[in-house]
Design a protein around this nucleic acid. Structure first.
Length: 578
RNA sequence: GCCGAUUUAGUUUAGUGGUAAAACAGAUGCAUGGUAAGCAUCAGAGGACAGUUCAAUUCUGUCAUUCGGCACCA
């Protein structure tokens, strides 16, 4: 772990490296105009306008070479402070820098940094000389909208990393290589978990092994939610457009919805489960005594996500949300949200996942309900989060159109952050659907509701788990739990079959490898398929009526009776040992 | 959707303007083997559609897929 001071030092180095990159690009592409070049989690980038020219991945080594050359030349880096007038004059030919200067408030000290023939507007600080920027690598190049706005022109963004030593750089690059081996798309193929066909972009197919994983996750979900006092429903995939108009989806989510005509009426495939859940709530009368009412649904939703957004199981066009809607009285919000945060924490801990919580607030446009209700809801969520003992970062404007939310973020193998769990407070839909409960005095009252998911999408969560475990799932989730390998098919197959049936009787997912292959061959394959346990059964085991197992990740063989082995397996499964 | 890359057998990869190469996986046969790849034989492939060309998997274009970003988002 680095300390804060070291982090700061590395940030300065990376930021200076961004300037070095810009200088090199300017040498090679004299027409280049520069927007901003900030430091990010790992490394830095610079956004560049090259007019009609295009920088491709294959051009990066050429740019790196120029950077090395400039670094070797070893010019000092000078800071200069300017008045606004002088700054505007200095950068008068650079629309991007003028835009930056014009957007600075009056108190900002405008400064620029110069190294050799290159000057850039920059707050700093920087290293003293380009000489110390030596251990860097340009990672990738891509398009990026100016000011992060799709309405604007697309600039070219070059990403890079920089370290103080060559060893750290090599280590970082190796880490990236290692991460690629954990990619759920790669492992999903290797372990026969799922597939994606060209006939269904964004519509994944789950294979037998993936279904086992899925079913285990879903069973676990049902059992934990039952303990937490949930009841369960299943609502239809398609519902009449009128319902979506009532819920507001038709106006706020239209471009992501699939529709179809049925008997001259427009139906929409549900992109969310809530409107169906509302109808279920309205199906009966509710007493204050029944609140909070927790109604869960593993709901299959479809959303037309942009083609460029699709990514393995992380971003798909159809997925199952482990949804639930909780209806309650306003004074129950805090307790219920705290309870939920603890619930989510408990579930994630079982998988060994770490997460961050963010509070997403009211969108700037496209939202329903009064601002006062939004403010109240946002405050309620934030307080509950703090009372549950968690920090929460504010993510302004990222709320759902019907309410603010607490989002639970988990990182994938490449360090990219994905939203999984979310708790969304909604004081709007109950209004729109005219939901009521009967209070103590026999009067109709309006409940508030929470939308919440824990896995988020079962598909995404499986993707996260594949990368988290690098395909080596804990026993309870492993598609094949025990792989039985007879040493010799002629003499040990019968005994192996007996062991296999006994394991099956005990609900162990077991595979018998009775192929005519050498023992070493079968062991190798079992290791590669990441089976948690393999049993090697030969003359010794037959004679002693024992089993010998080898546990994943170890090379030692342990001999036990079958009963002892089953106890060991059951213990590992029940405790969900990772 | 935008920028860039990508697409060769089930998988991973090679190569080429003129018969497409290999490894693993598969089938068959031999080998009966105690902890990470036994041997042999066989079968199997250039995303789709156009164009250039005597000839295209190879060059060009369009579309599609996938990937890395951007935007959007669970």
């Amino acid at each position: 772990m680095r300390n804060i001071k070291e982090d700061e030092k590395l940030n300065i180095l990376n930021h200076s490296c961004a300037h070095l990159l810009a200088q090199a690009v300017k040498h090679l592409y004299p027409n280049a105009k520069f927007w901003v070049g900030p430091v990010i989690d790992s490394g830095f980038y610079y956004d560049i306008d090259l007019g009609d020219e295009v920088i491709k991945e294959e051009d990066l080594p050429k740019i790196e070479k120029e950077m090395k050359k400039i670094s070797k030349d070893g010019k000092r880096i000078y800071r200069e402070e300017l008045s606004r007038v002088d700054a505007l004059e200095k950068f008068k030919d650079d629309l991007y820098k003028i835009d930056l200067i014009n957007n600075m408030d009056d108190n900002t000290v405008i400064s620029c940094y110069t190294q050799g023939d290159f000057t850039d507007l920059c707050r700093g600080p920087h290293v003293d000389t380009v000489k110390v920027i030596k251990h860097f690598k340009l990672i990738k190049v891509s398009g990026a909208y100016w000011k992060n706005d799709a309405k604007n022109k697309m600039l070219q963004r070059i990403y890079g990393v920089c370290f103080e030593t060559e060893e750290e750089l090599t280590e970082h690059l190796n880490l990236l290589e290692e991460a690629k081996k954990r990619d759920h798309k790669k492992l999903g193929k290797e372990l026969d978990l799922f597939m994606i066909s060209e006939y269904g972009p964004g519509f994944p197919f789950f294979l037998n092994n993936g279904m086992i994983l899925r079913n285990e996750l879903e069973n676990f979900w049902y059992s934990e939610h039952t303990k937490e006092g949930y009841e369960f429903i299943k609502t239809p995939i398609m519902l009449n457009k009128d319902l979506w108009e009532l819920s507001g989806h038709w106006y706020n989510y239209r471009e992501n919805m699939y529709t179809s005509e049925i008997d001259d009426k427009t139906f929409a495939v549900k992109p969310m489960n809530c409107p169906g859940g509302m109808l279920v709530y309205k199906n009966s009368l509710h007493s204050y005594k029944d609140l909070p009412l927790r109604v869960g649904e593993l709901g299959l939703v479809h959303r037309h996500e942009a083609s460029g957004a699709l990514n393995g199981l992380f971003r798909v066009r159809t997925f199952t949300q482990d949804d639930a809607h909780i209806f309650m009285m306003e004074e129950q919000i805090e307790e219920e949200v705290i309870r939920l945060i603890n619930f989510i924490d408990r579930i994630y801990s079982i998988f060994g996942l770490t997460y961050d919580i963010e509070l997403s607030t009211r969108p700037e446009e496209k939202y329903i309900g009064d601002i006062s209700i939004w403010d109240k809801s946002e405050k309620a969520l934030e307080e509950a989060c703090h009372k549950a003992g968690h920090d929460c970062k504010i993510n302004p404007g990222d709320g759902a159109f019907y309410g603010p939310k607490l989002d639970f973020h988990i990182k994938d193998s490449l360090g990219r952050v994905w939203q999984c769990g979310t708790i969304q407070l909604d004081m709007n839909l109950p209004e729109r659907f005219d939901l009521t409960y009967i209070d103590k005095n026999g009067e109709k009252k309006r409940p508030v509701m929470l939308h919440r998911v824990i896995y988020g999408s079962v598909e995404r969560f499986i993707g996260i788990l594949i990368e988290h475990y690098a395909g080596a799932f804990p026993l309870w989730l492993s598609p094949v739990q025990v792989n039985v390998i007879p040493v010799n098919n002629e003499y040990h197959l019968e005994y192996s079959n007996k062991i296999v049936s006994k394991l099956k009787e005990n609900n162990i997912r077991v595979k018998l490898d009775s192929r005519d292959e050498k023992l070493g061959y079968k062991i190798r394959e079992s290791v590669m398929k990441k089976n948690p346990y393999m049993l090697i059964l030969g003359q010794k085991e037959v004679d002693e009526n024992m089993i010998s197992y080898r546990k994943r990740g170890t090379e030692e063989t342990i001999t036990l009776t079958l009963d002892e082995f089953i106890i060991l397996l059951n213990d590992e499964m029940e405790n969900k040992i990772i």
